[in-house]
Design a protein around this nucleic acid. Structure first.
Lengths: 249, 249
DNA sequence: CGGAAATTTGAAATCGCTCAATGATAGTGG
DNA sequence: CCACTATCATTGAGCGATTTCAAATTTCCG
């Protein structure tokens, strides 16, 4: 029921290890679009596991502008960047109706001691998130509107395919143009014009918020970011299955 | 000799735990400015601990543009974002002459099992890096040149003070304006003009590559990013000292 | 069906870029 | 120690991408 695939992208975990994660969760929360799970500046007592729906991590500036730093899909851990902060770094806002599993930070931290391999899996996960952020920084810093939009569409599509391999070239993107603007560092007006340009170039087709990637190759070239290939199996990095007690020492 | 303060920002580690980290390292490498420790696309066999000097993490686009995604100071772990990738995500280039400790990824990964508290410390470290990247994304996406430059100066100054508390309002920034441009997503020409504007406004003073932050408050307000307060002590999150064996179970 | 939210369009203003040239600085070898 | 060279910083002018502001249309939802 709870999507746990994100933890096993690199190393496969035993049922006992996955169980420990499920036991750390205390309850489930449901929210509708636009509601915030937690606001920037709030105390950090929990992290969250996104069970269903989409969530945005947002950073607000003192000028009243908002940056969407990450679009979360089911299976993502939410809120963990703030775990070492006194007050939450990001606001977590639902982009669609969502279901979220709540995990107290203490229980979360304990997993590192009781289930070290899960800890390592979460470490790898965090590093992967860093790479995505690095690519985001590069996209914002070094490329123009069409490139940024291409990169965002490809990125979301890529991640959707990971969770549901049968997703084709077409998918629903439940963000307004205003939200896409907040994610790409552009204005909604310019997002709109850039979509029309991508339409005209024939690389995408739009129908409301449903997008069809007509020419993925061209999009990838346009985005001009390197493609990242995840290690298929990081087991070589860490001792097998559940016998880590033996390996320790 | 090796700066280990970055690992103890949140939880204090025993000598045994810190020792384990030192034992993971195989050798030391020295490089001069402009040399690369590792290129984007290289196989990922090692991570690095920066012993002295400054290093830039760079992401190159297929258009031949380069984004500096992180400016590393002594004590930083270098290259860890790529640990879950087949090929390195970033190029690591020396900004000054540097000394680097080399740690094979296998030895690094093993630390999570043999020294879980150190693993947790590195996890917290990774989350902290994510927050910095999120702020970077926000800076690039939502603010203009003077703000971005202010944010960068404050950020570097802040981190310098962590390592050496006796650093005053003045510090050396060993980056060319071209490199600052690559870090802020601007051009070197515009960096130059923006520095002059900040000079004129009286918030900074420049002398070659030495910068004096004349009005930190104004700079902070200009940067318009939230200030992040680290937890003083994350020990509440994880079992005390070295007796994690007892706590596990 | 009606109203709010979202998308689309137009025109003018602005920020930052490009290109190109000039000055300054630092390192190097004679 | 100086001339030489390369790199870096600075300046000017014109151009282009994106923003801003404002209004018109369309879509969504109750």
């Amino acid at each position: 029921m709870i999507p746990l695939h994100r933890f096993q992208e690199f190393i496969s975990l035993s049922d006992a290890e996955l169980d420990a994660l499920e036991r750390a969760r205390t309850h489930t929360v449901e929210m509708s679009r636009r509601q915030s799970l937690r606001r920037q500046g709030d105390p950090v007592n929990e992290v969250y596991l996104l069970a269903s729906g989409w969530v945005a991590s947002c950073v607000d500036t003192s000028q009243g502008r908002r940056q969407i730093v990450k679009i979360h899909l089911p299976g993502d851990i939410l809120g963990s960047p703030s775990i070492a902060l006194e007050r939450a770094a990001e606001t977590l806002t639902a982009l669609t109706p969502v279901k979220v599993e709540v995990i107290p930070v203490e229980a979360f931290a304990r997993l590192f001691e009781t289930v070290p391999r899960l800890g390592f899996a979460m470490f790898l996960n965090a590093q992967q998130e860093r790479v995505m952020l690095m690519d985001r920084v590069t996209s914002l810093g070094q490329t123009q509107a069409p490139q940024r939009l291409a990169a965002l569409l490809l990125h979301v599509h890529e991640r959707l395919k990971l969770a549901e391999p049968r997703v084709g070239k077409s998918f629903e993107l439940p963000l307004t143009q205003e939200e896409l603007a907040q994610a790409t560092g552009l204005t909604s007006v310019h997002i709109n014009r850039t979509f029309q340009e991508l339409d005209r170039r024939g690389v995408i087709k739009r129908n409301g918020r449903r997008f069809t990637l007509l020419d993925t190759r061209a999009l990838r070239e346009l985005a001009s970011l390197p493609t990242r290939e995840l290690v298929r199996d990081a087991s070589r990095l860490i001792a097998g299955d559940t016998e880590m007690q033996a390996a320790a020492e």
